[in-house]
Amino acid sequence: MILYFLTLVLFVMGVYCLIAKKNIVKKIIGLVIIDYAINLFIILIGYRRDGVAPILFKDMPMEEFARHSVDPLPQALVLTSIVIGLGVLALQVAICLRLYEKYKTFNMSEINRLKG
């Protein structure tokens, strides 16, 4: 339970960073932290104390296997989600650089040509 709570703390830190900071680079860092918190949460779903690798050998009874093996699916999901996160991060940083070229600032409150 304490692990889930720590993940929540990480998530909230990310949300704070996203909302409270004006600098767009810091906002991106906040998004990355949120992403990592979710990834950790998914990993924790599949976690099992003293688990074994989910490979079924011929001489292994099915019930014991089901009781002891960790869930492999969340790990696959997290890998995919990390790759997606990398793609989004690259795009964010690229747009951030182009914004800096145009506006000469990283401050979100000065990047305000569009009105609501």
Binding site: A90, V93, A94, L97, Y100, E101
Partner: peptide, 17 residues
């Protein structure tokens, strides 16, 4: 390619601007 685009070419574009 991303590394190059963001570090070296990125700086290059800003200099051009």
């Amino acid at each position: 390619a991303i590394f190059m685009a963001l570090s070296i070419f990125g700086r290059f574009v800003s200099k051009l601007v």
